[in-house]
Write a protein that binds this DNA or RNA. Structure first.
Lengths: 277, 277
DNA sequence: TATAATAATGACTAATCGGTCAATTGTCAA
DNA sequence: TTGACAATTGACCGATTAGTCATTATTATA
């Protein structure tokens, strides 16, 4: 096992017990049996560690569920969705606990909040497409409510599973939720969440960012980074913000250059919205 | 406004935005326009502040809902339960946000965790008694699941209300949840949470309150309060506890007098249960 | 075996935290 | 105006944090 994996594994145990903020780097390295310096050979910061953990598990979680859902017949679909999710949560209960504890609102790192929000929306999207496939046009008015009900029930029962120390019958649990969601899908008539509401919620998510703020962030990022294509792209973007002279296609390309760099995700996101791409 | 109230008010704003742990005492005192020392004249510690906030709002919340539920006809009961809760959350949105952020698992103070757990169980208990009253013997197998569904749906929709900056139609929301819960109560057959399961998780809830405890609380409240009908009522209630001599109807009326005073919600709740009203 | 390259260490720094307390300011009766 | 008392202040304390880096240990190579 690589040192990076060791740290991620041991840190996850502590995060699940105590939470992210409450766990110190020293505790993590003690628990791994390594020195503090060794930690910083694997991760640039404590934030990068939680980033890695969230990315590692969330991509797995989402792709797992997505695959199962895409390869299951409709008559078993809802059950598979619940059962797979609960099983995955049960299997990676430490990560699931971290996920429950550190809801989007508790982190202080803006990039991290954005990341959690992004994954949350991805899960919502997958759930919505499942609901649409299952019930079609019948639930066109209530489909968003149905998604929220699934989310609410799953969240609450997951909490029960994770934090009560009683072993649960996940098949029975999944069956009982299938019954409930089917009931709601077939008989509920009052729609609370409309498409307009969903759209009006998405809007304020990206708050207008100013030229000055972007310049400040770019300057800071450029200082931080080592020589690379990404750094060169940042420098060119900064110059363009100071004195617009580049073709829009070139600007888009420069943003694309930095989009996948782990430390540039947020700034590229802001740049994209600033230039209305 | 007393200094204590000022601090509680201003601190709550910061806690709602940043969370409890992430807000420093210095930030609170800056936001109040007082010195750090002055903070510690009003509160023994930062923990005592969050204790006060949680007690102040939770006692109000629980006794409010409990009273409404006890004094509403069955045909309006579920709607009233939802609507009152959402309205209270909306009215005290800063506290509701703190409540959502600092779920039982995030605090580090053991007493605080226990307190949150205790209030959580009180809410569950109130919800359960409502469910039993509404659906009687029909849902004897599924009543605990029903309570958990109510909790899950309410929690998820509350999150929507608090953290999306879109004004919501709380009446429509409550109606839609009434429809959903009625559907589940009438048609759901698969029980997942059994009485045994609940018992295996159970810990002592609200202990029976003693005459002495009530007297102590009354004495303290009487000292705190300014001259008013409410204070006079408290004094009479104290005398009645020391030497029972009043007609039960009078006692009920005296409790009614204090029920809506923000500082007497909890004591009135305890008195009501002490006298079996 | 000798040497260069790499990995790992832990004492250290600067910042921030909750909490304290000697010193200062404000109040009011004499 | 004075002086006793209460209220208020903010510099300061010890503890803890994330993160650094000169030093040491280990490994690979010649």
């Amino acid at each position: 096992m690589s040192k990076k994996q060791l740290i991620m594994e041991k840190a996850l145990e502590l995060f699940a017990k105590q939470g992210f903020e409450a766990t110190s780097v020293q505790q993590i390295t003690d628990h791994c049996g390594i020195s503090k310096g060794a930690f910083y050979l694997s991760f640039k910061s404590k934030d990068e560690l939680i980033f890695s953990l969230i990315d590692y598990f969330m991509t797995q979680l989402i792709s797992d569920i997505d695959y199962k859902v895409k390869n299951t017949q409709n008559n078993e679909l809802l059950f598979t969705y619940f059962y797979t999710t609960f099983q995955t949560f049960s299997q990676h209960s430490d990560f699931a606990k971290v996920l429950m504890k550190e809801q989007a609102q508790t982190f202080h790192n803006q990039e991290l909040i954005e990341k959690m929000y992004m994954y949350d929306r991805l899960v919502d999207k997958a759930t919505l497409s499942m609901v649409e496939r299952l019930y079609g046009e019948e639930i066109i008015n209530t489909k968003y409510d149905l998604v929220y009900c699934i989310k609410g029930l799953m969240g609450n029962y997951s909490k029960l599973m994770l934090f009560s120390n009683v072993p649960l019958d996940l098949k029975l649990l999944s069956e009982s939720l299938v019954e409930k969601i089917n009931l709601l899908a077939e008989h509920a008539t009052i729609a609370f969440i409309s498409e307009d509401f969903i759209r009006s919620m998405e809007q304020p998510a990206l708050k207008e960012v100013t030229n000055e703020q972007l310049l400040e962030m770019l300057t800071q990022k450029i200082e931080e980074m080592e020589e690379s294509i990404e750094k060169e792209s940042l420098i060119l973007l900064k110059q363009h913000l100071l004195d617009p002279s580049l073709n829009l296609a070139i600007v888009k390309g420069l943003i694309e250059n930095i989009r996948n760099h782990p430390h540039c995700k947020w700034i590229s996101y802001l740049l994209l919205s600033y230039f209305n791409f």
